[in-house]
């Protein structure tokens, strides 16, 4: 009973928040509505017994990703209204409905066949975090390491792209060149 109430409440909240995100003309409203929707989605993970996933959702999405977007929005002019694409509405809605039906088919296809057995069954009696750790560090160790390398690459790419003066390398320059560069910088600051 409580599960049903929680499900419908959070479903309503999530859908309304994401609807605001895709329809509002203010970028800041979209950002805050998206952050709220991410928090509400973590509630579904807690209802479903995936506690660790819910915590990760809050930490990574509403913590890291939203903070990154907030920093990124400082670079852009977010005060002006967002212009919308003025395309054919029938094509857009038709494609959306088609894609949604496609998703249902994709997810419902395994359920039609009844001979599905769990590959890594959930063991009763131990916490979700422990189960996740056991499966992640045995069966999914290689993908886990590859994901770590991918995050490192993404971090370096983000720093290089958004950082200033990344074309200069202090380790490869000689002492005189560094001195020269610093003097030029001081001139710029003084002028």
């Amino acid at each position: 009973m409580f599960e049903a109430i929680a499900f419908y409440l959070f479903a309503f909240l999530t859908i309304s928040m994401f609807y605001i995100t895709v329809t509002t003309s203010q970028a800041l409203y979209a950002l805050t509505a998206l952050a709220a929707g991410m928090i509400f989605i973590s509630a579904f993970f807690f209802i479903l017994g995936a506690d660790f996933l819910g915590a990760i959702q809050i930490v990574v999405y509403s913590g890291a990703v939203m903070a990154l977007y907030a920093f990124g929005m400082m670079f852009f002019d977010t005060t002006r209204d967002v212009k919308e694409k003025s395309g054919n509405k029938y094509i857009v809605s038709g494609l959306s409905i088609l894609a949604a039906i496609l998703v249902v088919v994709i997810f419902a296809a395994p359920m039609v066949s009844t001979n599905i057995t769990a590959n890594y069954p959930i063991v009763e009696g131990i916490g979700n975090t422990q189960e996740v750790g056991m499966v992640l560090f045995t069966k999914y160790l290689i993908p886990f390491e590859v994901a770590a390398v991918m995050l490192l690459v993404a971090m370096i790419a983000g720093i290089v792209l958004a950082g200033k003066k990344m074309d200069l390398s202090l380790t490869l320059m000689s002492g005189e060149e560094i001195q020269h560069a610093m003097e030029e910088q001081n001139k710029k600051v003084l002028v």
Binding site: V82, K85, S93, S96, A99, V104, F107
Partner: peptide, 19 residues
């Protein structure tokens, strides 16, 4: 599915790359 459809509508409607 409903959330996915909302996201797809957003992808097709928006002109601003951040959104």
């Amino acid at each position: 599915t409903i959330l996915f459809a909302i996201g797809l509508v957003g992808v097709m409607r928006r002109k601003n790359l951040l959104l």
